[in-house]
């Protein structure tokens, strides 16, 4: 039991030290994450009404098309967005939850 407690204490101290050593990069990533969450919120909102192409999502969200493509690509890789077919020269993307309804 005491051994467990000691191990837990040592682990907490180790993580604290690591956090201290990396405080600048953690802060930088935290800012990046916040920005990313906001962009994802805007993209998801723009996709709420159904599938769209990258230019359509960009038009609805006001974000640059290349940024939309990068985020949609990331969301597709991690199963948050799915491809639902084509529209001319473009593919259509939908939020996974919308596509499954």
């Amino acid at each position: 039991m005491t051994q467990d407690k000691e191990a837990a204490r040592a682990r907490t101290a180790m993580l604290k030290k690591l956090r201290e050593e990396h405080k600048d990069t953690i802060e930088h990533t935290r800012v990046l994450l916040k920005k990313q969450q906001e962009i994802r919120r805007i993209i998801s909102q723009a996709m709420k009404d159904g599938a769209g192409t990258v230019p359509e999502i960009a038009g609805a969200s006001g974000l640059p098309a290349h940024e939309v493509l990068w985020h949609v690509t990331a969301m597709k890789k991690y199963d948050l967005v799915t491809e639902t077919g084509r529209d001319g020269d473009y593919y259509r993307y939908a939020l996974v939850e919308e596509a499954s309804q």
């Binding site: 290349h66 597709k76 593919y91």
Partner: peptide, 16 residues
């Protein structure tokens, strides 16, 4: 590949 298709980076268009 990243997109699963050959698309151009500016807007996801399949290049002609």
């Amino acid at each position: 590949g990243p997109y699963g298709h050959i698309l151009r980076p500016s807007d996801g268009k399949e290049p002609e």
